[in-house]
Amino acid sequence: MRKTKKSRVGWYFLLIVIILYLIIGVIRIDVILPCLKFSLRIFKNVIPIFAIIFGLMVIVEYFVDPEKAKKYLGKSSGLKRWLIAIIGGIISTGAIYMWYPMLRELKKKGVSYGFIATFLYNRAIKPALIPMMIFYFGLKYVIILTIVMIIGSIIQGIIFEKMEGSDFL
């Protein structure tokens, strides 16, 4: 039931946009064709990239086992732990809130908030979506942003470890 509701939100959104087009069409019919032409140009650009994204998503889904990942995350320590938080965050798929229960379990097992913060921050880096990002912003930009975000995620993790250490959290 929840799933049905969630999947309908997108369709409602599309319906609102179509209604908006109809309203504007009634007021100013001359702008509708340029709007559609512009949108069509974007569609043509993004469709081939979608095929690549789908392929990459299938590869990640096929090779990453969430149960094994959970066991590994709970046992690791030291530098390895940060690396796992980074890689785990990057390769994790699905909506962010789907990972909250697993992270809660890990927290109960003694994993720090720093680890969780780093993991969550790295979820922003999506290998499957990199082709799309390169298409819009270029390879150099994507590489720099990815590296800066990984460094940022470690800094955020360290901040949370300090906060947790001083009983702030």
Partner: peptide, 29 residues
């Protein structure tokens, strides 16, 4: 592995189509 990404992309499709149509509208108006 095939179904999950397909479902995820299909769920995102109306939002993406809506956003692209909205961009067209905003860009023109």
């Amino acid at each position: 592995a095939l179904i999950k990404p397909a479902r995820s992309m299909l769920n995102s499709l109306p939002i993406l189509v809506g956003i692209i149509l909205l961009i067209g509208l905003v860009n023109t108006l």
